[in-house]
């Protein structure tokens, strides 16, 4: 196990050490103390390790993560796990704007609320938010799933492609081309699997959610849709 205290160790040293880990490393347990809101903590990991961060982090924590499981015991700044490729990122508290932006794979679990543009341009990852999400969440989301146990802010799923959105609470408004869709048994099973991934199996009823997706009216430009642009 490696213990890194960012009060005394430069961030560059930590990230360089994480990047140098070989794929079959035995050094799989890392604890980071005193993050103190620094930006770019644990970005670009590509190894099957577990990283525990004890405190609040700044922008882009665990950005572009591959394989690693990163847990933040605190709140996270803008762009948490942005463009994640695989692995898992959890934050026990709230996440700021653009959490999981463009993430292509892996799982992002947010214990508290997520701010605006959560899952913007999502490309395949699964995001589970236990609280609320802010406005313009899942804007132009292409693939993957966004699960919101709380409420969603305005313009949810604006200009959505093929991502699936599940919301248990209220939706302030839907964005352009985002519509409510039927919640079938298959969708409930899929949602149950996502909740299990987040460690919420049994605690949350999939039947309490509504499903939203793309109406696919904007896939080809038509002048009749001009009011949507």
């Amino acid at each position: 196990m490696s213990l890194v205290d960012l009060a005394t160790t430069p961030l560059r040293e930590l990230n360089a050490a994480l990047h140098q880990l070989p794929p079959d490393t035995n050094n799989t347990q890392w604890t980071i103390r005193n993050p103190r809101g620094q930006h770019a903590i644990a970005v670009g990991i590509d190894a099957p390790i577990a990283v525990e961060i004890e405190g609040h982090v700044g922008y882009y924590c665990a950005g572009m993560n591959q394989q690693a499981s990163v847990t933040i015991r605190g709140n996270a700044g803008v762009g948490l796990a942005e463009n994640m490729m695989s692995g898992e990122v959890r934050v026990t508290g709230d996440a700021s704007q653009a959490a999981g932006a463009t993430a292509q794979g892996g799982t992002l679990v947010i214990g508290g609320n997520a701010s605006a543009r959560c899952g913007i341009s999502l490309k395949g990852a699964d995001i589970i938010v236990q609280g609320n999400v802010g406005h313009m969440s899942a804007f132009m989301a292409q693939a993957g799933n966004l699960v919101v146990l709380g409420d969603a802010g305005e313009a949810l799923g604006d200009s959505l492609y093929e991502a699936c959105l599940y919301v248990r609470g209220k939706v302030a408004s839907l964005g352009a081309d985002c519509i409510e869709k039927a919640m079938t048994e298959a969708h409930r099973a899929k949602l149950a699997a996502l909740l299990t991934k987040a460690g919420l199996n049994g605690a949350v009823d999939p039947a309490a959610f509504r499903r939203y997706g793309s109406a696919r009216r904007l896939y080809h430009f038509k002048v009749d849709n001009v009011s949507a642009y």
């Binding site: 770019a40 700044g58 803008v78 341009s121």
Partner: peptide, 18 residues
């Protein structure tokens, strides 16, 4: 999608550096 304005851009470039 994940930055707005020059102050954010500075932090974004720092992420790419790291």
């Amino acid at each position: 999608p994940d930055w707005t304005g020059p102050d954010d851009l500075e932090i974004k470039l720092h992420e790419l550096r790291e």
